[in-house]
Amino acid sequence: MKPRIMVMALLTAAGAMTLAPGGVELARALWLLVGTGLVVGSANTLNMWLERDVDCLMARTKSRALPQQRLAANTALVFGALLGAAALPVLALAGIIPAALGLLALILYVGAYTPMKQRSHWAVWVGSAPGAMPALMGWTAATGHIDLPGLAVFGTLFIWQVPHTHAIGIYRNREYSAAGLKTLPNTHGLAAARFQILALLVVQVAVSLTPALLGVAGTAYLVTAAVLGALVLVQGFAGDGSTKWARNVFMTSIVYLPILFGVMIASGQA
């Protein structure tokens, strides 16, 4: 069930709860985390069920259980549906807003993002919303409402995903094209993809400063976000847009986000 995505979702949900003002009751926090895990598990399972034929065509996914027929497709479908059905009442115990956001994330990921990947490169933007949703679910479980500070945390995680995913699209361009997936590089070319990645890295750095400006995190986070952002921009603008450059952008983004979010949490609790 894509364990790395699951871990990221749970960590960002838990982190957002700790950042939110006022704290959260232990029982509510546990319901939120269990419900988040169920939603993510459902979304990933149903995504892999829908993409089982596409996954056969790509090296990084062809070893999954469904393409290898180690798991029956109907079993995966039922399992994913049951996880989704269980998630909503569990999330409701953490609050109506987290439950509504969880339902929205599930619908966007399975009903919009997954089929859209074979039709438009804009799927990246649609898929980034459910990817960042656990943080907003965690925030609203603690606060009971959606506000600008919570949206700043959500936005930081949301915008990070877009250049990150476009970079993958460059260095896996042939593989994605062969599988029929629409990415920015194979619909608009490498030059356009590089330009958009660079523009989005600038936006990413700017958005990453907003949690500090809105009082979610302190000075240590602001300095960290600025320094990390400068390093990301230097690396990005110094590159040539090649496959190697794209892979470096991708690898840097993997290091960047945990440090940024970790310092955000530590600074917010200080």
Score class of each variant (00 low, 15 high):
residue 101 L to P: 07
residue 204 Q to S: 14
residue 129 A to E: 05
residue 133 M to W: 06
residue 235 Q to L: 15
residue 55 D to N: 07
residue 165 T to V: 10
residue 252 T to D: 09
residue 24 V to A: 03
residue 163 P to H: 07
residue 245 W to M: 06
residue 3 P to E: 12
residue 70 R to N: 09
residue 126 V to R: 01
residue 52 R to M: 11
residue 163 P to G: 11
residue 104 L to G: 03
residue 109 Y to F: 14
residue 193 A to H: 05
residue 20 A to E: 05
residue 255 V to Q: 13
residue 255 V to L: 15
residue 74 N to R: 13
residue 179 A to F: 00
residue 98 P to E: 10
residue 109 Y to P: 14
residue 90 V to L: 03
residue 218 G to V: 03
residue 244 K to E: 15
residue 70 R to T: 02
residue 69 Q to V: 07
residue 53 D to V: 11
residue 121 H to E: 12
residue 230 A to I: 08
residue 186 N to L: 07
residue 79 F to D: 00
residue 136 L to H: 04
residue 90 V to I: 07
residue 147 D to N: 03
residue 184 L to F: 06
residue 1 M to F: 06
residue 114 T to H: 07
residue 215 G to I: 00
residue 222 L to M: 07
residue 105 A to R: 10
residue 165 T to Q: 11
residue 238 A to D: 11
residue 181 L to E: 08
residue 249 V to R: 03
residue 253 S to L: 13
residue 257 L to Q: 13
residue 228 L to E: 02
residue 114 T to V: 12
residue 6 M to P: 08
residue 180 G to A: 10
residue 70 R to L: 15
residue 201 L to M: 15
residue 153 V to M: 02
residue 140 T to Q: 09
residue 50 L to W: 12
residue 230 A to P: 02
residue 22 G to Q: 11
residue 270 A to D: 10
residue 168 I to M: 02
residue 32 L to C: 14
residue 15 G to H: 11
residue 187 T to D: 11
residue 218 G to H: 03
residue 187 T to A: 07
residue 163 P to Y: 10
residue 111 G to F: 08
residue 62 K to E: 15
residue 179 A to W: 02
residue 51 E to D: 14
residue 72 A to R: 13
residue 132 A to Y: 00
residue 230 A to W: 08
residue 122 W to R: 13
residue 79 F to C: 10
residue 129 A to I: 14
residue 207 V to S: 03
residue 210 T to I: 09
residue 244 K to T: 15
residue 155 G to Q: 03
residue 116 M to T: 00
residue 177 S to P: 07
residue 262 G to P: 11
residue 201 L to Y: 14
residue 117 K to I: 10
residue 166 H to R: 11
residue 119 R to Y: 06
residue 197 I to R: 06
residue 227 V to T: 02
residue 111 G to V: 06
residue 191 A to D: 15
residue 176 Y to E: 11
residue 214 L to T: 04
